[in-house]
Amino acid sequence: MRCQPYSTRQVYIWLKNKQSCLLCDESTDALFAICAGCETDLPWLRDHCERCALPMPMSGLTCGQCRRQPPLFSEVVVPWRYDFPIDSLITRFKHEGKWPMGRLLAELLGEALQHRFAEGLPRPDCLLPVPLASKRLRKRGYNQAEMLARWLGKQLDLLSDDRLLLRVLDTASQQGLDAKARQINLRKAFALAVGAQIKGRHVAVVDDVLTTGATVDAVTRLLIEAGARRVDVYCLARTPKPQD
Rank of each mutant, 00 (worst) to 15 (best):
L89D: 09
F93T: 12
K94L: 04
K94I: 10
K94H: 00
H95D: 15
G97E: 02
G97L: 10
K98D: 15
K98C: 14
P100T: 04
P100Q: 02
M101C: 10
R103A: 13
R103V: 11
L105R: 05
L105M: 13
A106G: 15
E107N: 11
E111T: 13
E111P: 00
A112T: 14
H115P: 05
F117K: 03
F117V: 08
G120T: 03
P122D: 06
R123C: 12
L127T: 08
P129Q: 07
P129K: 13
P131Y: 11
P131M: 10
S134N: 10
R136C: 06
R136A: 13
R136I: 07
R136P: 04
R138T: 12
R138K: 13
R138Y: 10
R138M: 10
R138P: 00
R138G: 15
R140A: 05
G141C: 07
Y142P: 03
Y142I: 06
Q144K: 08
Q144D: 02
A145N: 10
L148P: 00
L148F: 11
L148G: 05
A149H: 06
L152I: 03
G153E: 03
G153N: 01
K154E: 11
Q155I: 01
L156E: 03
L156F: 03
L156S: 02
L156Q: 00
S160H: 06
D161H: 02
R163K: 14
L166P: 00
L166R: 15
L166H: 01
V168Q: 14
D170I: 03
D170R: 01
A172P: 02
Q174S: 06
Q174A: 03
Q174W: 05
G176S: 03
L177V: 04
L177Q: 08
L177G: 05
A179F: 13
A179W: 11
K180S: 12
K180N: 09
Q183W: 11
I184R: 14
N185K: 04
L186G: 04
K188F: 02
